[in-house]
Structure formats: C-alpha cells, structure tokens
Design a protein around this nucleic acid. Sequence first.
DNA 1: TTTTAGTAATACTGTACAGTACGGTTTAGT
DNA 2: ACTAAACCGTACTGTACAGTATTACTAAAA
Lengths: 205, 205
Amino acid sequence: MRTKSESRRNTILDAAFQVFLENGFSAASMSEISARVGGSKATLYSYFASKEELFVAVIHQFADDQFAELLGMLDLQADLAVALEEFGACFIKLVSHPDLIRMYRNVVGESSHSEIGRMFYARGPQELHKEVSLFLQQCMAQGKLRQADSHIAAQHLVGLLYAEMRDATLFGILENPAETAIQAASQRAIEVFLRGYAVPGTVIT
Amino acid sequence: MRTKSESRRNTILDAAFQVFLENGFSAASMSEISARVGGSKATLYSYFASKEELFVAVIHQFADDQFAELLGMLDLQADLAVALEEFGACFIKLVSHPDLIRMYRNVVGESSHSEIGRMFYARGPQELHKEVSLFLQQCMAQGKLRQADSHIAAQHLVGLLYAEMRDATLFGILENPAETAIQAASQRAIEVFLRGYAVPGTVIT
DNA sequence: TTTTAGTAATACTGTACAGTACGGTTTAGT
DNA sequence: ACTAAACCGTACTGTACAGTATTACTAAAA
C-alpha cells in the first residue's frame, strides 16, 4: 500500500507559502494552492484539515527557518561593538527582507482573530529575545556593560535596530534597503546602545 | 431639495470604524455597516464609491484623531528628562491602546496590496516623527543633547519607546498594559536614550 | 405646491471560494 | 498478482458578499 510522504507534505507547504506570500491569508485560495502543487484539492485536505491549519503550518516552518540563522551568532569572544554591529546588520537584513515583511504583515493581519500571532511570536521573536538576553547578561557579568536587567536591555537593543526602518518597510515606503544602508543603521543603533549601557565611570567623548 | 449632510457622513464613518475594527478589512461586510448605520446600502455607496474608499476614509480620520493629541506636547521649557518621560508614557499608552492595535493590524495587513499603508504612515507616524525630530534638534542646539542627526535620534527615541511592548501587543500576547507599567517602560527607555545622547564630557554614573 | 435630490427597503446579479463527493487510477507492500 | 491506501480530476454544494437595480417615500427648496 501507499504512504503519505513527508516530501509531498513539504511540496504542499512550499506551494502554500508562495500563495500566502503573494495574496495574504484571506485572498489566497486553496484551489490555487492545490493547482500549484499539481494534485487535487482532496489530497490537500488529506494533509491539512483546513485553510487555517495549513497557514499555521506554513508560519511555523517559516519562523523556524528564518530565525534559526540568527540564533547563536553572538560571539562572546569577539569585540563587543563588532559582534553587535554584525549581529545588528544581519538582523536588520532579515527583518527587512521582502518575504519576511510580507509574511509578517499576514501574521499581524490575522492576529486579531486567531492564535496565529502568538504562535509566530513564540517561535520567532521570543526565541531570539532569549538568545540576545542571555548574551547581554554574560556581557554584563564580564563587565563589558553596566549592570541592568538583561531582558530590558535586549528589548532596547532590538528596538534600536528596528528603529530606522521598521515602519518604513512595514507600510511599504521602503523596500529592500541596500547592504551599506543596513550596516550604517546597525552601527548607529549599536553606538547609541553601547553609550546607553556603558559601564559607570566612562567619560562620553 | 435635500443635501447630503456632513453629519450623516460621520455617522457612516463611525459605524464603518466599528465594523472594520471588529472584523478587519476583508471580513467586514458593507451590508453590516449599512445595517448599523440604519440606512440602506445604496446610501452607503452614494457617500463612498467602494469598500476600499470607505476604509481609506476611516483610516485617515483615525490617524488624524489619534496622533493629533501627541503633536505639540513636547515642551522645550520643561526639564528634558521629565518632558521626554511624559511624552514617552503618552506615546506608549496610545500605541498600546487596543483600538489602535487593531487598526494598526488591519492597515499593516492591507499594506501588501494597496496604498493604504503609505497613506496611514504619512498621516500618523510620519507627522509625529517630524515633530519629535524638530524638538530634539532644538535640544541639541541648546546643548542639552550631543550634536547628532536629529532624524536618526528621533527614530532611536521612538524605537526605544516601542521596544518593550510593541511585538507583545501586536501579536496579542499583551493587552492593555497598566498605567504604571507604561510609565516604568517610558522611564527606562528615556534613561537609555539620554545616556546614548548625552553631551561629551559627561561621566556615566 | 411642485419639484428634485436624498433615502429606505429589499431583492437581485455575479462571482468567488471553502470544503465535499465520487469514480477512476496509480503505487507499494504482501 | 492481489489489495489497500493514496491520489487525480472534476464536478458539486452551500454560502457569503460586493455592488446594482427598483420602487416607493421624504424632506427641503423653488
């Protein structure tokens, strides 16, 4: 007898990702997804019980994929400013990528009438926050940063990194910022962060 | 003969606001809006040519209403830290208000397939940014803050204010934070901001 | 009073789509 | 080869809703 294959499931997930990306949740149609998979709608529904369930699966995989690369890239050995600037540039690059922006919009758009927002948050931003928070805590212990609540500091760091481009990308004013612009924004953010969390006794230059 | 009244238009706008708030753009129905207005659908369409046009009108009025109260509340005479903390608390309170969050989600959700995002940005965040930026520029001129690009500084300030609660409110983890929590978050953000933009020569404590 | 634009109530058109039903077909394990 | 599950294609059901059309009613302006 035949068995449902994992690869088929992934094919569906890929097609669904495309369609959701292009149309958003409500405007995406299950017929189009199944058409793009190449199979029939019945098959689709044998893998995923509903449109919403499929969307959730897509979001989960997407969050896992995207945020994975950022996790663990903070290096305690390296110079703090350099490490943070590199991390910052990667972060900004990720969160201003057109695909992520579109998915982000879709997730946010659905957050009023479902659990999708919470799920996405837990898998993406939340995970990242933990990582950054832990890193900063260790920096504080090493005396590279002043003593403070590392959770708040992590949020401040990410907030500063978001600061220059978040609204502009979300609302469609800015798309695909240049690598150099990203690095510059990261540097500016990190400079302010490091000043804000400098150890006591430091003299501002 | 009869004339289309401004008050009727506003009634429609109010009802539409409610319905869009509760359901989001695509799930909201024109029939329900007209039912809530009390009139007929034809009347609705005589005031607004389409669902999208009505939504745009709602967004515009909403943005104007909401951001107006924040504009001009930055006082150059007052102590800088106090002025910023008060402004910050008002800002956070505004952007974490359940109604604004829901509308924000709706606007962001529609930003992939229309100009709505750009319109909203221009009327809300953009206006606010100008104001904050101007204020900070004057502070720099007065020597209260170090010399820097005031536009970037404004974005950093707002980014820090958003930092603790933005994702949590957008994704539905946090709703209606307490006044005290808001004030505390504002204080922490302003502290980091003031350290980050302190004038040269200041010794960190 | 007589126009005339505005309004109401309601029915209708056209379309789009989620989800199902079903008969025939392919694939893999036995 | 046999068989059971997965699969295809396609048609179908039911529903929901944007936008229009119709007809009759109402209020203000001439």
